[in-house]
């Protein structure tokens, strides 16, 4: 019987050396000795390399960001939101192509829209403001917002004459309302009395669909 094989097997099953010693009716010292010896043998020396190299792919490592066109706006406090984004190669390529300018030279601008109770189509926000982004930025904390409002964020660039050009558009997100903000709420009344089929407020989660744009 090969002792070390049994020890390795038990070890792989998550047992401690002490447990193994008990189970195998051996002293802990003896188990430890065998185990250490085994581990030393496992350290490969050069001449022991297998003749047939095993093709093991390099481990996948967590990237800084993903190469995908994506922007997501998240609730945070009554006066702040958080947004992060990334671009796909094709978005970058299209911007470069449309403006005939290198990606790195295109200004990076964030535009915030207050779209509270609006079916937003790109031009009808209550208010907007723009933030010039430092280079290499892929996320932003939006501060000093108004409580109880719905916002959308665009990540974009500028045209030669200074207009904002949208590259990515976020989901809408809400800042929480102020304390004791209202004693009546028509939206909840309409919902309660089943006057509307769908709630008239933002329900945070996107029903993400992979084939969303295929009908």
């Amino acid at each position: 019987m090969n002792l070390i094989e049994d020890i390795v097997k038990l070890k792989e099953n998550g047992l401690t050396l002490q447990e193994i010693a008990q189970r195998m009716n051996m002293s802990l010292g003896k188990v430890q000795y065998r185990w250490n010896k085994y581990r030393q043998q496992q350290t490969p020396s050069h001449h022991e390399l297998p003749s047939q190299p095993v093709l093991k792919e390099e481990k996948w490592t967590m990237p800084f960001e993903y190469e995908e066109a994506n922007v997501h706006l998240m609730p945070r406090t009554p006066d702040s939101l958080y947004v992060y984004w990334s671009f796909s190669e094709s978005t970058k390529q299209m911007a470069e192509h449309h403006f005939r300018t290198n990606w790195e030279e295109l200004p990076s601008v964030l535009k915030i829209y207050d779209v509270t109770d609006i079916d937003f189509f790109g031009h009808n926000a209550h208010r907007t403001f723009e933030v010039e982004l430092p280079p290499m930025t892929n996320n932003w904390f939006l501060q000093s917002l108004e409580p109880g409002r719905t916002y959308i964020v665009d990540i974009g660039t500028r045209t030669f004459d200074g207009s904002f050009f949208t590259l990515l558009r976020s989901n809408p997100a809400e800042t929480s309302p102020a304390l004791y903000n209202s004693l009546r709420d028509e939206k909840i009344d309409r919902w309660k009395h089943q006057i509307v089929d769908e709630p008239e407020w933002l329900e945070n989660f996107s029903t993400y669909s992979y084939y969303q744009k295929i009908r």
């Binding site: 790109g122 031009h123 665009d154 045209t159 050009f165």
Partner: peptide
């Protein structure tokens, strides 16, 4: 995303996206 872009050229850019 900006269907009312004043410049036709940039309107097409937006459409292309």
């Amino acid at each position: 995303k900006q269907p009312n872009f004043e410049s036709f050229f940039h309107w097409t850019g937006s459409l292309n996206m």
